[in-house]
Design a protein around this nucleic acid. Structure first.
Lengths: 214, 214
DNA sequence: GCGATCATGTAAACACCGTTTACATGAGTT
DNA sequence: AACTCATGTAAACGGTGTTTACATGATCGC
């Protein structure tokens, strides 16, 4: 653990970088957030890290594998954030679900680089196990929440929690990709995306017969 | 209208192509459907059309303008398809809305190149007037449908049609982008995307108090 | 300590891409 | 028939992804 000689913050370095993999991930986050996943370039990440164009290939098979790594970390952070918002369903599942929705959009807005790598990079899901698993972890947070949501419904005609989770996820993702990035000049909305999502989920839960607790 | 000497289907041509703009659009559709909008290349489109790499610049300022043109045409076709599905709200707005949903997903699956150019190419909406206008036209079909949907609701607490349209659009788009392309190995669904969307819209309309007609 | 090993860096090369520039062609107009 | 101008080509530029051969120096057995 002694690679940190005097590296931090633009100090000199020797022939070896010492921490290139992590630096490349940082570079990817910075560059993707500025110019989108499509405009992100392996060579530019190398330049950002102050390293030759071939060096990144010692750590990632190709550009897609770097993005997949970023996406994996993104899903981990995303799952953690949603789980925090859910907070074991407190104060009640209905309210906690709305908090998940707001957390979803907040993540998309505050971490555009992660979100871009996760959903807009067009990565094949079979690219890496880690990638698929961290995505699953995220989805399972939602499923868990939806199981609590439908738990009190009468068994007759109770909707499957997975389906409810898919609906809420799809609605959130749709709103996030169509209107989620505030600074871009997208289609003007009559209300903030957060309120649009909250209203949609409210109507949807109403349709399921799930009422806001008194 | 006499450019068609003996051009169609691989025939010889002289120094001038004669129909390059349209051919480039065809090329874009073919190539984007095969390799995605991100992998689409101006130079490859030129090769596809049997023309030098500089020739496309006589017809489009750059690669993005070509994609914007494709996206415009896509929105026109999309609007036409949704309007056809809506069919003036017959037999009734409730049923016709479900048909719009199925048409939405069918378009995303059958015209991946259009859909990709329209939503996944990351084009700034202010790129061209035509682009923005054709997108608006599509959205207005949905708004029109939703106005008919909420028409019979009691004025007190009637939801704005634009909001309902945004909800249905976002849900459809979310499902389409997450699960819409059948041949790709995306997350396995417990049901076809069409059924997932239909179920979601059913619950949502139920929540609005809109019942299926007897 | 000390040398061998091997992960991790560089440099150079290749093909491809987007874009611009100067020039060539030929279709339509007068 | 001559002119004009839209539309093609060829050549050149810098940037990009990727591979290859080579350089460096951190780590570990001795």
């Amino acid at each position: 653990m002694s690679w940190n000689k005097r590296k931090r913050d633009g100090e000199k370095r020797g022939y070896h970088h010492g921490n290139l993999r992590e630096t490349l991930v940082e570079a990817a986050l910075d560059l993707i957030s500025k110019k989108g996943a499509a405009g992100f370039t392996f060579a530019e990440a190398a330049r950002w890290a102050g390293v030759s164009p071939g060096a990144p290939y010692r750590h990632f098979k190709d550009r897609d594998e770097l993005i997949a790594d970023v996406a994996s970390r993104g899903f981990e952070a995303f799952a953690a954030k949603l789980e925090m918002a859910w907070n074991e369903g407190k104060p009640d599942p209905f309210t906690a679900t709305q908090l998940i929705g707001r957390a979803y959009l907040e993540f998309a807005r505050k971490e555009p680089a992660y979100y871009s790598a996760m959903f807009e990079a067009g990565l094949p899901p079979n690219l890496s196990l880690e990638f698929a698993q961290s995505a699953d972890k995220t989805f399972n947070v939602l499923v868990e929440a939806c199981e609590a949501l439908v738990a009190d419904l009468p068994a007759l005609g109770k909707p499957p929690a997975r389906m409810v989770a898919l609906h809420i996820w799809s609605l959130s993702h749709g709103i996030a990709s169509l209107f989620g990035r505030g600074d871009e000049a997208r289609r003007p909305l009559p209300m903030p995306p957060e309120d649009l999502l909250e209203a949609g989920v409210l109507v949807y839960l109403e349709g399921l017969g799930i009422k806001r607790p008194a």
